[in-house]
Design a protein around this nucleic acid. Structure first.
Lengths: 199, 199
DNA sequence: CATCATATGATAGTTACTATCAGATGGATG
DNA sequence: CATCCATCTGATAGTAACTATCATATGATG
C-alpha cells in the first residue's frame, strides 16, 4: 500500500502509522508462512511487539488486516477525474487502468499475493464481495448522473451490479489462472459488458 | 423451505429432519424476536430442546441456520429444464420465474423475511454474496454450452458475473425499497442486462 | 433378541473479540 | 522547563462461537 509516512505529521501520527504498517506486515508474513486460520492474533501481536489490545485498536477484526487497503479512495478519485461525457463503463475502465498504472511493481506483486490469499479463505472472500457491493450505490449514482437515457433507479442499480459482477468475474478468474494479469482481465470483462453479450 | 417429511424414510431420517426444522424455526423465531447477534447458540439449542453439540452437528456455523435453504437445487433443476436454444439470460430469467411461481405465499413471505434479515447482518450478507458467486462457475459452464458465439472462457465468466451482479442488484434494491417484489425486480434487472445498457 | 451403526449430551479447551481501567507518552500552554 | 490534557498502550477479566473427545442412548438389521 502506498506509503503515507511523509513527515510533517507529528510524532504521534507517524508512530501510529508505523505500528499499523508493522502489524499488517507481520500479519501477512505469518499468514504466508503458517496460513491464515492457524495464525492467531496473539502471535501477530507478539511479532509486531504490541499487545493484543493494541492489535484490535488498529484492526477491528482479523479479516481487516488483510482487507484494509488505501486503494478505494484512489480509485474513487480516479473515477471522478474521468470526463463527464464518457459512458459509465468507459469511465470505470479508464479509472481502473489509471489505478493499476499508478502501482509500482512491488506494489502490484503485493496486491496480487493479497488477492490470492483472500480467494483461498472463505471468510475473507465473502467479506471482499461485501465490500465490493458496498460500492453499488456509489456506482449507481454515477450511472444515474452520466447515462441520461435511464432515470430508472433499478436500471442504474442493474448496471452497477453488472459492472461489479463482471469485475468479480475477473478476480475469480485468478483462481483457475493464477498468473493472469488482473488489470487486463478486468478490462476485458468490462469491455465484454460494454459491448453487450450479443443476446 | 419446502417440506421434506414425506414418510417412507425410516424413523431415524424423519427424526433428523424434524430436529433440523425445529432448530431452524426456533432460531429464526429468536432472531426475529431479539436480533441475530444478541441471540446465542445456547439459547437456540435450549429453545429447540437439544444440546449445543447437536446444534453444531446440524449447522456447522450460526450463519448456516439462516443461509441454508433447499432452493438451490430446485433452481438448478429449473435451469436445466429450459430449452437449449434460449440465450443464457433468457434461460435464467425463465428458471427464476418458474422458481418463484412454485413458491406458496407463506413460503414467499418466509423467504422475504429471511432476505431482509440477511441484508441487515453484515456477516450474513457477505456469506450470501459468496454463495451466489460460488455459482459463477456453474453459470459460466452454461454460457459456454449455450452461446456458441463465445468460446472464450473469460467472456463466459464475464457474462456469468454480470448476471449474478444484476441479480444481486435486485436483492440490494430491497434495502431501499423493502416492499418491492423481488421476483419482478430480478426479472427487470436481468432484462436490462439482456437488452444491453446502450453503452 | 443381539449386534452394530449412528445420534446425542456432557465436558473441556481454543480463539476471536469486548469492556474496563491504570499507567505512559506526545502535544500544547504558561 | 514545568504542567496539564488528550490520547495511546498494556493488562485483566469476560463472552460467545466453535472444536475435540468420550460415554451413553437409540434406531436399524439379521
Amino acid at each position: 500500500m502506498p506509503r503515507n509516512d511523509r513527515p510533517g505529521l507529528g510524532l504521534r501520527e507517524r508512530k501510529r502509522i508505523k505500528t499499523l504498517v508493522t502489524i499488517q506486515a507481520e500479519a501477512l508474513r505469518l499468514f504466508r508462512l503458517n496460513g491464515y486460520e492457524t495464525t492467531t492474533i496473539v502471535e501477530i501481536a507478539a511479532a509486531a511487539e504490541v499487545s493484543e489490545s493494541t492489535f484490535f485498536r488498529y484492526f477491528p477484526t482479523k479479516e481487516d488486516v488483510v482487507l484494509l487497503d488505501d486503494l478505494d479512495p484512489i480509485f474513487i478519485e480516479a473515477l471522478r477525474d474521468q470526463p463527464r461525457d464518457l459512458t459509465t463503463i468507459e469511465a470505470i475502465r479508464r479509472a481502473m487502468s489509471a489505478l493499476f498504472a499508478e502501482l509500482s511493481d512491488t506494489e502490484r506483486a503485493r496486491q496480487h499475493e493479497r488477492i490470492a490469499l483472500i480467494l483461498t479463505v472463505p471468510e475473507l472472500r465473502a467479506r471482499m464481495f461485501d465490500r465490493l457491493f458496498q460500492g453499488t450505490a456509489l456506482i449507481a449514482g454515477l450511472v444515474a448522473e452520466r447515462e441520461q437515457t435511464s432515470p430508472d433507479a433499478l436500471a442504474a442499480r442493474a448496471l452497477a451490479g453488472a459492472i461489479i459482477g463482471a469485475g468479480v468475474a475477473a478476480i475469480l478468474n485468478l483462481e483457475s489462472d493464477p498468473d493472469a494479469d488482473l488489470a487486463e482481465a478486468m478490462d476485458r470483462t468490462l469491455l465484454h459488458l460494454q459491448r453487450g453479450f450479443g443476446a
